[in-house]
Structures are given as C-alpha cells and as structure tokens.
Write a protein that binds this DNA or RNA. Structure first.
Length: 440
RNA sequence: GGGGGCGUGGUGUAGUGGUUUAACAUGCGGCCCUGUCAAGGCCGAGACCGCGGGUUCGAAUCCCGUCGCUCCCGCCA
C-alpha cells in the first residue's frame, strides 16, 4: 500500500489515495461527516456522505479524537473548504487504534493546556502538538548543522563511556550504580575522555551524548540527565582560540536553523531567529563585576568571584543594550570557582583561561584551555584537595606528549530553550529527567 | 539542601468566612442541524474544593501538620 503524506495531497488531485494519521476533529452531522485528519506533514478534511453508507457513518460517529486511522478516498478540489481548498471523499476507513474517550487532555486546545507536570505524564500526547513537532525538527537541524561544521573542520566524533569506575572531579554530583560486585558511576561529563583523545593525537574531537548530574536541582533549567555537546581541540594558544571556533560554529548552526525553519518558528513560537554576529562580546569577570557594581546589582557576598544567575541576566541585558548581542563570553574566571584542570594565566595565576557562554541571559556552555603539563596539573589537583589515586589514570594522559588543548561543554536543551524562547527546559527535551521524574 | 507560591469536575480557571443545592470555559455523553470548517443549538453526566487535624454557630475560604507540584537560590549545561 502506498501511503500519501497529507502535505502532498495537492499533487494528487482526482486520484484515489491512502492516508494514515490521527483524527484531530470530527464534525458529525446528520448527512455529512467531516474528519480532520493529521499526520506530521499537515491536515486534511475527509468528507463522508452518511446516506451513502449509513453503517460506516454510525461507526465514524463512535470514533474518539486522536484515533489512529487509515483512510482511502478520492482527492478533490473544493474551493469551499478552508483547509487547503481540497478534501478527500471517503471510500474506506480502517481503525488502527481507537482513542479512548475522553482524552487525558486535548493537545490542540491551547487555551486549556495542562501544567507541564501533567503533560509530562502524557508526554506522547503532548508531543503531538505542532510546537513540539517543530521543536524536534529544529533540534534535528541544529544538531546536524553542528556536526556539519565540525566535519568540515576535520573533527573526529567520539563516544566515551557513560559508566565510570571512580568519582573524578568531586564525586558529589555523581549517580552511583551497582556494577556487578562493586560500585560504578554515571559520567557527569566526557571531559576526561575527550582530553584523552587529545593525548591520543586526534587533535579535534566532538561528542554528542548523555551526561548525568546527581544534583537535586528544582529549577526551570536543570535536568539530571541531558544531552551534552562537547568538543576539544589541540594546538591552541589560549582559550581565545576555543571561543573563536565556538562562535562561528554556533553562528553556522543558527544560520542553518533560520534557513530551514525560520518562518515556521516565527509562526509557531513567535520568535524571529537572529543569526548572531561574530565575534561575540567578551567581558572578563573583573569587567563584569565592575559593570554590575556600577549598575547597583547586589552580588551575594559569599560568592566572591562568581556570577549568580541574576548577575548573568543583568550582564546579558547590559550587553544586549550596548552591543545588541544575545551572546556573551564571560572570561578569565578566578581559580576558586573553576576546576583544577583549567589552565591558569601565566601573568595572573589567580585567574583561569576559561569562559562561560551566556545566551539570552542563560549559561549555555563552559569552556577553557586545559592544563596539559603533568606536574602543573598534579599540583593544581592537590591544591583543590583532590585525592590523586582516583584521578591518576587521568593524570597519566599527560605523561607522554600531550598537546596544548581546550574545549567546551554545552547543553543541547538549553540552546533550544534560548533559541525558541521557551520558559522551561522541560519543554525543550524529549523526556525530562529530574530528581522526582523517572517516568515515562 | 534553603526559601517563596500553588493544590477546586478529565483539563484550564472563578470563588479567599454565611442563599455556594460550588460557577465558567473546554472536553465527554445524548438529541437536533443539506457541507461543516475555532461549526452551531438544546439537554445531561462529571468536584464530598490534595490529605489529616484544629479555630468558628458556620470553612473551598482562617490556623497547624503532611503530601504533591511549581518557581527562586545553591549547583551547573
């Protein structure tokens, strides 16, 4: 059987076709029945003249919204039909899976949309909404464009293990799993492994994969499992080289999304995708602090050297105002708030060669030049109070010819959140995982 | 881990001490309607107001506890 996508029916006028999809609306009258059918390519009206087949008409009357149907019929032009000026004259109908009534909620009633938690209970129905269909089309193009750019720049894709043997960076944010007779942990980042790829001489690598964080965070932007976009490049001079690549890469991804779905995004999300100009503005932490101070923004006193989310939003507003940029690198963070593997400035050893990328006021990526000198790295680990036994395998990466290198880690769903202007990360991920959410 | 907010038919809301036998929208069921198209009209079912305790003549409404959700902070992407 040849199935015709609803979106291409106008190419099949006066032909008998088979469509398969969901019954979005049934308008059930005495003599005429109208079935609005949906597949992922669009909507079409199917018309049935009841007296012509009363039995079929009675059966149609029992169909619940969102039932999965196979329908054959003749495609005819009909100017009266507001939905595309055409309709299908029903010939046969097969119920593949009747939808029970009533539905838990109506995915197409935007005025009575349930709260996010209830929609997550029935996520597959929630995903039938056009906003969500488009969101995942956009995500696909976004990821594809990112890969394209990486491949055009001679990157190698890696897949690092998600089961690891020892707590590495701190341990507190790791999920513990039973691994036969002993403990293992879910990787909270591919950080060490992509650095190993640098030691292996791959020179440029990327990874798109799951990362796990055992943080009991209850916010609109955190998940316990999310998709990380990671890359690492060798033979850099400083973190500036990483940022210079990152912004062009992101600019390309935005450009491809806008080209492909710009008008649909405008229609569905009311967002005009703006392809960012490069370079993005860069502010050192010291400059960011001075600006916030001048604005009278009150930073929490105990967080000296760090930027709280409110501060990030304030500085993003400043940059938007002054440079008309939605993106901003905050660079040169103090060592106190950065991990031991970030390289320090030779002329300012209390500062790291690191950056955060802020987009739309939200932190979407963290990057740095890494410390690739074994002894220096070892000393910095000791300074941070880390036990060397657990990370010796990692330190060993830097014993036999490790090139200078750096990279970043970015959150895919956070990028989508910013790109489409969504208020909650739970809207921008296929299935949310949080401290209290393990199903579906 | 700390703090704030919310919990009323399936869903979204109104009602914040007394004709409330808890309202409205949507959904659901039935009937009607010569083609509808955000369909329309009429009728109907559906909520002991998260749960437990208390204050009061009287509690959806006030208080305490508890559970759930949510947002903010911390942590981070």
């Amino acid at each position: 059987m040849d199935r015709t996508p609803i979106g291409s029916l106008k190419e099949h006028l006066n032909e008998t076709v088979t469509i398969q999809g969901w019954l979005q609306t049934l308008r059930d009258q005495k003599n005429m029945q109208f079935l609005i059918m949906r597949d992922r390519t669009g909507l079409v009206q199917v018309a049935h003249y009841r007296p012509g087949n009363p039995e079929l008409g009675d059966m149609i009357s029992t169909l619940g919204s969102e039932s999965a149907l196979t329908i054959t019929g003749k495609v005819v032009e009909n100017k009266v039909v507001k939905l595309g000026g055409l309709e299908i004259q029903l010939e046969t109908l097969t119920v593949e899976n009747a939808a029970e009534t009533p539905l838990p909620f109506d995915p197409f009633d935007n005025d009575n949309l349930p709260a996010i938690d209830f929609r997550m209970d029935w996520r597959y129905l929630d995903l039938r909404r056009e906003q969500n269909l488009l969101l995942f089309k956009v995500q696909t193009v976004l990821e594809h464009a990112m890969r394209e750019y990486w491949l055009e720049n001679q990157f190698i894709e890696i897949h690092s293990p998600k089961i690891t043997g020892s707590p590495s960076e701190s341990g507190a944010e790791l999920f513990e799993v039973l691994y036969f007779e002993r403990k293992a942990y879910l990787a909270q980042s591919p950080q060490f492994y992509k650095q190993m790829a640098m030691a292996a001489g791959f020179e440029r690598v990327f990874e798109i994969g799951p990362v796990f964080r055992a943080d009991p965070s209850f916010t609109s932007r955190h998940m316990t499992e999310f998709t990380g976009l990671d890359m690492e490049i060798s033979w850099i001079e400083s973190h500036e080289d990483v940022m210079a690549f990152t912004e062009k890469w992101l600019q390309y991804a935005y450009k491809r999304v806008k080209e492909t779905y710009g008008s649909e995004i405008q229609a569905v999300f009311g967002v005009d995708i703006k392809v960012p100009e490069v370079p993005f503005p860069r502010l050192t932490m010291a400059e960011a602090y001075a600006i916030l101070k001048a604005q009278g923004y009150k930073l929490p006193p105990e967080r000296k050297g760090d930027l709280d989310p409110g501060g990030e939003r304030a500085i993003a507003d400043y940059v938007k105002e002054k440079y008309d940029s939605d993106f901003l690198f905050v660079i040169d963070w103090p060592i106190s708030v950065r991990p031991f593997y970030h390289m320090r400035h030779p002329d300012a050893p209390e500062l790291t060669r690191s950056f955060d990328l802020i987009a739309g006021g939200l932190e979407i990526a963290t990057g740095a030049q890494r410390e690739h000198r074994y002894e220096v790295l070892r000393q910095q680990a000791l300074e941070k109070g880390l036990g060397l036994e657990n990370i010796q395998y990692y330190l060993d990466f830097f014993r036999y010819g490790a090139p200078p290198h750096g990279g970043f880690g970015m959150g895919l769903s956070r990028v989508l959140m910013v790109l489409l202007g969504l208020p909650n990360i739970r809207e921008s991920v296929f299935l949310f995982r949080g401290p209290n959410r393990l199903t579906p």
